[in-house]
């Protein structure tokens, strides 16, 4: 059976675990390198990317994740998780995994009062559109041509994929729509070779 981890250093870990439970997927919290072994997929939750990044480096959890990604670990990063996946964070030296060749700008949508929800079409999921919740979200400014854009909003990518790695600038875990997690779980358990 497929086993999915949720990086549990800080952030909305419980919400992701709840979605995985609804999907009947075996789940595990990841706080140490040893916890990454035996996983098919790993979720990097929403939270504060600077906090999670610093904590991830301390016990070399980041190195374990990068090594596992090379071996085919599927990864879904939501909001802060997407920032941690990006190789280019505008104006910031903060720790990151750098697994997605994209340029993101933190807090580009503005402060909390500019946070918003809206409906977004995600063609790979089909109808109906997804209710997308953006909270102090990162803006994806540029993606390499090796990255597939699965959904856009206002001319910018908001859901992107490269091989078995998914980045999402909004929070699918805050709604009852489980389709993005479902898509991720089947991606993670697929035999697709790592890039």
């Amino acid at each position: 059976m497929v086993k999915i981890g949720v990086l549990a250093l800080q952030g909305d870990v419980r919400e992701h675990l709840d979605v995985l439970r609804v999907l009947g997927t075996e789940a595990r919290m990841v706080t140490r390198p040893a916890h990454v072994a035996g996983l098919q997929g790993l979720i990097l939750p929403g939270g504060e990317s600077t906090t999670i990044g610093r904590l991830m480096v301390e016990y070399e959890v980041d190195q374990a994740i990068i090594a596992a990604a090379r071996e085919g670990l599927g990864i879904l990063g939501t909001c802060a998780g997407l920032i941690l996946l990006a190789d280019n964070i505008v104006g910031s030296q903060q720790p990151r995994l750098g697994l997605l060749p994209v340029r993101v700008r933190r807090n580009a949508y503005g402060r909390q009062v500019d946070s918003f929800e809206t409906k977004i079409d995600v063609p790979v999921l089909g109808p109906p559109p997804v209710r997308a919740v953006f909270i102090r979200a990162p803006l994806v400014e540029q993606v390499s041509d090796r990255v597939d854009v699965l959904a856009q909003h206002g001319g910018h990518p908001v859901l992107i994929q490269k091989g078995k790695i998914l980045g999402c600038s909004f929070h699918p875990e805050l709604t009852n729509d489980t389709r993005i997690h479902q898509y991720f779980v089947s991606l993670a358990s697929s035999a697709m070779a790592p890039e």
């Binding site: 952030g11 504060e48 919740v133």
Partner: peptide, 13 residues
């Protein structure tokens, strides 16, 4: 949801 959601993002911090 947005108000409560930001607090969710602070959890464990």
């Amino acid at each position: 949801r947005l108000k409560k959601g930001l607090a969710d993002m602070l959890k464990g911090g």
